[in-house]
Amino acid sequence: MDLGSILQYLVSGLTVGSTYGLTALGFTIIFNATRVINFAQGEFVMLGGMLAVFFAGALNLGVFPAVLLAVSCTTLVGVCMERLTIRPVQGANVVNIIIITIGVSIFIRGVVMLFLGKDTFSLPPFFGTEALEFFGAMIIPQSIWILLITMLVLVGLRTYFNKTIFGKAMLACSFEQKAAHLVGISVDRMIMLSFAISALVGSIGGVILTPITLTSYDVGIMLGLKGFAACILGGLGNPFGAAAGGLIIGVLESFGAGFISSAYKDAFAFIILLVILFVKPSGIFGRADIERV
């Protein structure tokens, strides 16, 4: 096996893994603030891509304004989702809220299908289509963009959670809502913010991946599933574990398809996931003491 092929597998794995990672990040942010797995997370990714296609095509905007508009609209959808469906049932059982998020995901998918159609769409790449050669591997510029933007989002989130008062307040909510409330943090607002941020992160994943992978109203299902797997792999509740989990799944899939057989591509990731959960149930980067009483 030559170096070029190995590098090629690595690059395509990292590219796809980035979206899994960004989806997983969204899961983690909401989970940390509310203990809820938001199954509409994949729909945020889909919305980012579909809205960008819509704004670029129907409204005849350039790629960049369309992408910005799509990301802002999706963030707004995240806020609306929290306001209209999560807040009214505040204090309900976590399982009930999870079912609500599944309902919201079906609703979003349906609305997009009705208004934007059932076809697959493509978006022009941000910069350049010509592939670059790198030690025998072909890399399209969009792949580099995806990796860069994923890194930026990660660094941005890290700074936000560690350095800003809002980020720290959100962390406080995730540790102990009652105590956070007592010291004057508006828990409601933090929960809303968590939905906004995870919609933002998800839609960024959606728009940057669309030029390579195309999009349609139902891509959110599979991305949500893989993102969730990445989350579990990295350790539920750990944002950086989630992102790393996504990259690991992406790379494993790609190498599995390349070295063993493409027929079992999806199986490799899930087999590894099962093995890790047997050996280390809290995930690779998770702490074992997240059990709450």
């Binding site: 092929s5 597998y9 796809v16 493409s262 591509k265």
Partner: peptide, 15 residues
């Protein structure tokens, strides 16, 4: 072989 929802087939094409 690739999956119906797969988004990157460079691994298969490299093979």
């Amino acid at each position: 072989i690739y999956g119906p929802r797969d988004t990157d087939m460079t691994s298969q094409l490299t093979r």
